[in-house]
Simulated scan of single mutants.
Amino acid sequence: MAERADHGALMDETYRYQRLIYDVTRKYYLLGRDHLIEGLDLSPGQTVLEVGCGTGRNLLAMGRRYPQARLFGLDISEQMLTTARAKLGQGAVLARGDACAFAPEVLFGVDGFDRIVLSYSLSMIPDWRGALAEARRHLAPGGQVHIVDFGDQADLPLWFKRGLRHWLARFHVAPRDGLGESVAAVGAASVHRTLYRGYASYAVVARA
Rank of each mutant, 00 (worst) to 15 (best):
R197G: 03
L118T: 00
W159H: 14
A2H: 11
P44H: 07
L20K: 14
G198H: 04
L10K: 11
I125N: 03
A140Y: 06
G97P: 14
Q68L: 12
G180P: 05
E78P: 04
Y15F: 14
A140D: 02
A2S: 09
R33H: 03
V51I: 15
L30M: 14
E134P: 08
A188S: 10
P104K: 02
G130A: 14
A95P: 05
A184Y: 05
A61K: 12
V204N: 08
R70V: 03
K161Q: 03
Q79H: 07
H7E: 02
F102K: 01
L36F: 14
Q46H: 10
G198E: 03
T25G: 03
T83H: 14
S77Y: 09
R137C: 08
A154F: 13
I147G: 11
R193I: 13
G143H: 03
L132Y: 10
G52C: 02
V145C: 06
H35K: 09
E105C: 01
V117C: 15
H7Y: 01
R129N: 05
L10S: 07
C53S: 08
A99D: 05
L36K: 01
Y29A: 04
D114A: 07
I76N: 06
E3I: 06
Q46C: 04
L158I: 11
A95Y: 08
L31K: 02
L60S: 12
F113I: 08
L156C: 03
